[in-house]
Amino acid sequence: MNLPVLGEVARQFLILSLLSIGGANAVIPEIQLRAVEVEGWLTNSDFSQMYALSQAAPGPNVLIVSLIGWKAAGYVGAIVAMVAMCAPSSLMTYQVANVWERFRDAPWRIATQTALAPVTVGLILASGYVLTRTIDHEWNAYLATGVTAIIAVMTRAHPLWLLAIAAILGALGLI
C-alpha cells in the first residue's frame, strides 16, 4: 500500500468535496485538472475511459471519484477517494440541517440559491466541454457527442439506451 499516494488522494478529494457546489458533475474539470495534470495519476485517455465506465454503471455520478482513486492507489484508493469526497460536505450538510428551519425563509438564503443556479449551469456546461475536449479527437466523435446531447434534450430517451447505442456504434468503428 502506497501511503504517500493515499494521503495525496485523501487531500485532493477533501478539498474537492468542499468545492463541489452544484454536485459532482460540476467539478469534473477540477477533478481532471488535479488528477491528470497536477498529480499524474492517469492520462486523459484513462480519464475518459473511467468516466465512460462510471456512466455505464448504476449509481450516483460521484462514483467517478472512486475510479480516479482506484487508478491512483488501487481498491483502498477507491474507498479513500470516495470517503474523502463525501465526508466534509456531509458533515457540513448535517450541521446546516440542524439550523435550516431558522433561516430557510431568510432573504439572504433565497438570494444565495438564486445566485448559485447560473454558476452551476456554467460549471456543468464546462464539464461537458472539458469531457468533449478530452474524449473527442475526430469529427465522428464530435458528431456523436452533439447528436447525443440533442436527443437527450429533445426527447425523453433513457440515457442508458443512448450509451448502449454509442457502445455498439463505437465497437463497429463508427465513432
Binding site: D136, A144, A166, A167, A171, L172
Partner: peptide
C-alpha cells in the same frame, strides 16, 4: 472502440444536463 463510443455519448449527456 466501444468505450470510446460510450465516452463520446457520455460527454453529450453532460452537455444535455447543462442545457
Amino acid at each position: 472502440r466501444a468505450t470510446h463510443g460510450v465516452s463520446a455519448a457520455a460527454a453529450g449527456l453532460m452537455i444535455s444536463v447543462a442545457l
